[in-house]
Design a protein around this nucleic acid. Structure first.
Lengths: 242, 242
DNA sequence: CGACCTGTTGAAATATATCAAACATGGTGG
DNA sequence: CCACCATGTTTGATATATTTCAACAGGTCG
């Protein structure tokens, strides 16, 4: 099952990967990029497998090539809260801290590009321009997490699910996706952990949205947007709720 | 009532203030510090007054000299969620974004040190060391916000209130406070907005803690810790709940 | 085929919200 | 000094959103 780590094949096309370091490397020249590429490794993970665990020494940073991962924290009694989902192109697990502050688990089959943190730090030393990019990244991440706080603190279950759908669609759109049919890449349980709900509630909300003609389901993971306007309104807390 | 903004007296002792830029300036030399001090202004705000509002152009950054402010977002229908509280010494409203992503309101009488963002940016240009400090600051802030997500998503009302008390005590301890009696500096409503609860629920939880001998109240804003161990356990989600 | 996982749906339980009243407190002005 | 008001707090009764517990359905995979 966990043969993933046994195949750290050096990637040939990792320049592609490196350039995707969420724009971190965009100020860099091609030769620097290929230098980065040589230091990186491609890995594969199966669904539910952990990329790293909360508390592990943060020796690597990752960029997702394909698939999606869930960043989450676990309580001693089993309660789980997801901090967020990360999709292809996202930087994962890069922290100035000594240990990862949360776990990262593959939500489906995942291909990921791994680089040693030491090397990344060195890269930052030599190319201070990147620090600005990193600061911007952290700023966006902070803003997103604050949105999340708003949602968990004051939104109803329906508003949270609508918000999840809308922002996932937005994230995919930034990745070139278009159309009306969205692949969730997450189980009801994953979504529940993200939204601070139970999986049953999430399922009920999907059913309610379907009944009201806001969405259609083609299989539980495949959502078609029928009334994006209404969903958007719900998502920002202006929904009429009826 | 709002004569605050009419008294932007240049502060003489603002080097003290500048040095408190949450360690941002710790790598700087004294002469640079006094240079910063000359560019900063002291302001006073009355309770409930806004230091800045969500959406305002982010033209200034602030450091709290005295008092406490609430960072919050407001929904069109009046629901409010607080992102966090900031205490003396904290940096507030410094964002790379164009607009403030949330509002900042004084929770009581507040003295604050204001500096133009332009000047702060220039300072960062000239002293790149500070970027590292800023990155560390953002990292801590991100981690704190993620804790908040965990709390709002999976903690019960009692766990959230216990967590609030413990982390406020911790914050005050870092500021040199010691002892057992804590000044909340926040109304029940403020705390409710922070924890995603109603003010009535917060009040009931305080009463329950009092009944169980975990705390004593000397006036509604003054909390005495009687059983810190139990509170701590509740705060991290290991509480036995009885 | 049976075991298993994910999802759906129902009925009951419960934590928290909502609505409402009474109680303190501090300031203000007569 | 007292009456008065605004603001915050406590507490009670009730309502409700969401959870919990439970049963079942549809895939998939060995």
């Amino acid at each position: 099952m966990s043969m993933a780590k046994t195949q750290p094949a050096i990637a040939r096309d990792c320049a592609h990967c490196a350039s995707r370091l969420v724009g971190l490397c965009s100020p860099l020249t091609p030769d620097v990029l290929s230098e980065v590429a040589e230091q990186a490794t491609h890995l594969h993970y199966a669904a539910r497998e952990a990329v790293f665990l909360q508390g592990d020494p943060a020796r690597h940073a990752f960029t997702l090539i394909e698939g999606a991962v869930r960043l989450s924290r676990l309580l001693p009694d089993g309660r789980r809260a997801a901090i967020g989902f990360r999709l292809a192109g996202d930087l994962v697990g890069f922290t100035p801290a000594q240990e990862y502050p949360f776990s990262a688990e593959a939500m489906g089959p995942v291909t990921i590009c791994r680089i040693e943190r030491r090397r990344l730090d060195a890269l930052f030393e030599r190319h201070p321009v990147m620090k600005q990019s990193l600061l911007d990244l952290f700023t966006r991440e902070l803003a997103a997490t604050q949105d999340h706080v708003m949602a968990l603190g004051r939104f109803t279950a329906e508003e949270r699910v609508a918000g999840f759908l809308v922002s996932l669609a937005e994230a995919q759109r930034r990745r070139g996706w278009h159309g009306k049919v969205l692949d969730l890449m997450a189980t009801r349980g994953d979504i529940a952990d993200l939204l601070g709900l139970t999986l049953e509630t999430v399922s009920r909300v999907f059913s309610a949205f379907k009944r009201r003609g806001l969405i259609a389901l083609h299989g539980p993971q495949s959502v078609e947007f029928l009334d994006s306007v209404m969903l958007q309104e719900l998502a920002v807390g202006e929904g009429c709720a009826d």
